[in-house]
Design a protein around this nucleic acid. Structure first.
Lengths: 333, 333
DNA sequence: CTGAAAGCGCTTACAG
DNA sequence: CTGAAAGCGCTTACAG
């Protein structure tokens, strides 16, 4: 059905090997031959077969990406950015949407030669699969969520620092009756942001009591439940810090339902600065992550590892910035 | 590096062909041999090489999915559903995030044997690539956005019918000073929803004047601009119907900014029923699409086509339902 | 039921 | 610069 390099060779009156050489940069082919072959390829509508190429080169040109939850708009944004950076380096992207179980599928794909390497966006602490994959020296990089001490390339926001910016900001404006809502403590995003926030608050003289910290899942529904509980048990709270924007949206919803005015009575702060956060109906103060940069670094590190499996693992942290919007800005003095 | 079937054969004391047979369902292998081979595979940690298999079978086991805009939460939801249904049928999913240009990349992937077929979620009318792909008889299916008269399998919401539900609802409640905001008219979602809506309105005796129909892009920003213009030029409007939820969110934002109360002064209606629509801060009346069903049908049709390239093309329309929420429900009599 | 062998479509030393 | 040939790791007739 589809034309092969042999068909092109026949059409151009050269050997099959010469056709292949024309396709491979840096191989010596005379201009005349090259032109004849290119012509023949165009006439026939030839496209080289990827599987055959993969068999010889051992490279698929495809990278796997594992995402846990596309319901958090942060991940589609990250996925889109990864698509862009992988595309720019001429790679395809195979995606697994995990409910926890798909990390293994992606790692298997490395072993069966479906992808060259894998980008994990949502790894959690104590992941058995991760440990085994690292033992097998599978080419992989962690983006967004990281694992302390894991021997692989990792890219994330400087979460502790970003959370510190929030603490500074709240204390500077006298909003010190603060509660914190996190996702699962097994996610580094929750752990590091809570850690950085609480440490900074303590250093500023306003330690965060344990009973004002709540954990849940990274979903709207869980955020609503957790926020309602916190606000109910601690009516004096005047700032609610959430470990991501999705939870912060839930907090805004919950405050609205309880008749609590934002920002007059309550400031709400998120983390990520996803697109929705700038919508007027949400208008959330948050810490911005540069998703494009996150994706670019992840891609760069993974491709570098494919080229040199023995290079030492690198940990990249991107600078976060505080973005002040209406969920906090216009507080009374 | 990685173990091959030959390594397994040596370990099990059989021929390489026998190892291959153990992996292929429906090939006759004695129980004793099978057990010995399975054992050897487990010991060695053998995983069959996909590229080699693809070369022989002509099947990659991977399906391509092209998505235009992950900024509209509908698409991540659809992508997640597709991931699930493809996974259930033991296929991997390669994703292209298009800014218009990636349809061709996906079609090329079919020709180079990277994917077996492609699912387009965001095709537009008069697509040159689509026409060429159909000429080449590339295995593909259109989901969500469809193209009238295109000779390929297509799945979508019954958009005209869904939009009709909105018209019925508005007229029944006397909300007849209506404007409509669409995305690009080249998208079937806009064309069909507008068509179905306007036809039904006319039939109910309240024809929709041209000047109350505005088109833009399917983005929050464009929605805000378009809504602001419509509301400014036509202060008497008491219902704003949007061709998807993303635009409806923008309409809500815009109304809020203009001091227009929803639903007292203005009803806002969307289409899709994405997750966010049920959040309290948005709480949007909308028409629900069943994303899981959309994905399941698309997957089913594509795999059926791979098995039988000559089967006649099918057009599937899924039943929409109206979901009434606070952006319309609690209007004064 | 099992083995020996051909072949899928490329890339890449090896000669010339 | 070019051709003939080997081989990547499988599947699958073809014999036995």
């Amino acid at each position: 059905m589809a034309a092969t390099s042999r068909d092109v060779a026949r059409e151009a009156g050269v050997s099959q090997a010469t056709v292949s050489r024309v396709l491979t940069a840096g191989t010596p082919v005379s201009e005349k031959t090259r032109a004849r072959v290119m012509d023949a390829m165009a006439r026939i509508g030839y496209v080289p077969n990827r599987a055959a190429r993969t068999m010889k080169t051992g490279r698929t040109g495809t990278i796997g990406v594992v995402v846990a939850d596309l319901g958090n708009p942060f991940y589609p944004q990250l996925l889109e950015a990864l698509s862009r950076s992988l595309d720019a380096s001429d790679h395809r992207m195979t995606v697994w949407v995990s409910d926890g179980g798909k990390n293994q599928a992606a790692l298997d794909a490395i072993r069966e030669g479906t992808v060259d390497g894998v980008i994990f966006t949502t790894v959690t602490e104590h992941s058995h699969e991760l440990a085994r994959a690292l033992e097998q020296r599978s080419p992989l990089v962690l983006v967004n969520r990281t694992v302390e001490g894991a021997d692989c390339d990792q890219v994330s926001s400087a979460n502790r620092q970003g959370a510190g910016l929030i603490a500074n900001y709240l204390v500077a404006h006298g909003r010190t009756r603060i509660a914190f809502i996190g996702g699962t403590p097994l996610a580094s995003t929750t752990a590091q942001r809570l850690g950085g926030f609480s440490d900074r608050l303590a250093r500023l003289g306003h330690p965060l009591p344990d009973e004002l910290v709540a954990h849940g899942a990274y979903t709207h529904e869980s955020g609503c439940r957790t926020a309602a509980q916190l606000l109910h048990l601690n009516p004096g709270i005047n700032a609610l810090v959430c470990s991501n924007d999705l939870l912060a949206f839930a907090a805004l919803d919950t405050a609205k339902a309880a008749g609590i005015r934002v920002p007059e009575d309550l400031w709400v702060i998120g983390y990520d600065d996803i697109q929705q956060s700038s919508w007027r109906s949400l208008n959330l103060t948050t810490v911005r992550q540069d998703v494009a940069q996150l994706a670019a670094e992840a891609t760069r590190l993974l491709l570098a590892r494919l080229d040199d499996p023995d290079r030492p693992a690198i940990r990249v942290e991107l600078e976060p910035t505080l973005v002040v919007r209406a969920s906090s800005a216009f507080a009374p003095a």
